[in-house]
Design a protein around this nucleic acid. Structure first.
Lengths: 207, 207
DNA sequence: CTCTGTGAAGAAGTTCACAGCA
DNA sequence: TGCTGTGAACTTCTTCACAGAG
């Protein structure tokens, strides 16, 4: 394979492949062709082969891809092969729900701390983590946490983001419905669930 | 403006504009230029003008766009100008969190029913809605609910989706980490929050 | 002059189609 | 034969650049 810029879209699809491959692996599937994987993921086989080709050739012509090998490869590419610590800021309903969400562990994330500024919540246990006062954010570097999940109300989010960046966080998953201004080196992914719902009526028959 | 296919990407951005415009409106801003709106949304002004141009010309050269008018227009385009009823299936932590999420109302969605199959949850109140037995899904058509939010565990999701489609639902927001097979006329948007986190390490400096 | 609206150019992403390996 | 890997064609989306309105 020759050098070529890897499309962001391909990166975005890797977790989709990973999820399906993990499921296939559990079912005992040893190897899979691009077209079978396409059925599984609702994507197009050409696209799948192209995506994989950006990272090297790891399929066998006439046979397909080894499921276990592919899982390993994708984990390496996405750098999910080490456990990464994340903190969660905002111990409200959404925050609590996320703490119980199995997907994080699946991709190698460990929620290592939970912060809030509400005295009523501080000290309480959610699952097996104790909610800490927001002032304790200052120890993030010492505790080697450099990812964060923001589940505070929107007006507080920018302020929290500034603090997190100051404490060495370089990746933020933002659930507050607003944009965060951060230095270039920090990666922010914002998830606004209502926004996905908002474009649905456009695709629906008139009601 | 001439006829042209409207890019899905433009549709995807409309809620982003809408959110910012609503915020600007609250602050009393009367009109805004594409470049100011670009700052606000972290998008590019050319893109914004192009997006709006697909739907007609509603700006004033030398001045900009009227905030109130634009809000109205976008709502019409996205068909958010009527309140739409959605049901939520799966009254677990994520489901409960979503019930308290203000974003739905903002875009004209009313969560009109909550279903679960756990006898311990049925009859309980979450906010001001009572959790109903899953068997009550049958009345969806009568109650004029044709959108649904699935927050059940992944293995149950397909089954629920089939039931929902059977009862006339034509739009599903799926939070279960799996693909749903539905007839073409039904629009599904799947949100897998861990998936967004999964691609973050790729963009981060080696750790 | 300022800012919109939009063809045209350019970039990014997808699909095709087929050579070549197992 | 069956399936991968990949240039090339195609499609979609973004950015440019500027005519023209206020």
């Amino acid at each position: 394979m020759r050098y070529r810029k890897i499309p962001d879209e391909s990166i975005r699809r890797l977790p989709i492949y990973l999820r399906s491959l993990l499921l296939l692996s559990e079912r005992g599937t040893q190897s899979i062709s691009s077209s079978k994987l396409a059925e599984f993921t609702h994507l197009n086989p050409n696209k799948i082969r192209k995506d994989f080709s950006y990272f090297g050739a790891f399929g066998t012509p006439g046979v397909g891809y080894k499921v276990a090998g592919l899982i390993k490869q994708i984990r390496v590419i996405l750098r999910l092969n080490t456990v990464r610590k994340a903190s969660l800021v905002g111990a409200g309903k959404l925050g609590s729900a996320l703490l119980g969400y199995p997907g994080f562990k699946m991709y190698g994330f460990e929620i290592a701390a939970v912060f809030d500024n509400d005295p009523k919540k501080i000290g309480k246990k959610i699952g097996n983590i104790t909610v800490e006062d927001i002032s304790r954010l200052k120890d993030m570097r010492k505790r080697k946490i450099n990812l964060a999940i923001i589940t505070t109300p929107a007006p507080a989010a920018q302020n929290i983001a500034d603090m997190l960046v100051d404490k060495g966080v370089n990746g933020i998953l933002n659930f507050a419905p607003c944009y965060l201004k951060v230095p270039k080196k920090v990666k922010v992914i914002t998830i606004d669930i209502a926004m996905d719902l908002a474009r649905m009526p456009y695709y629906l028959p008139a009601s």
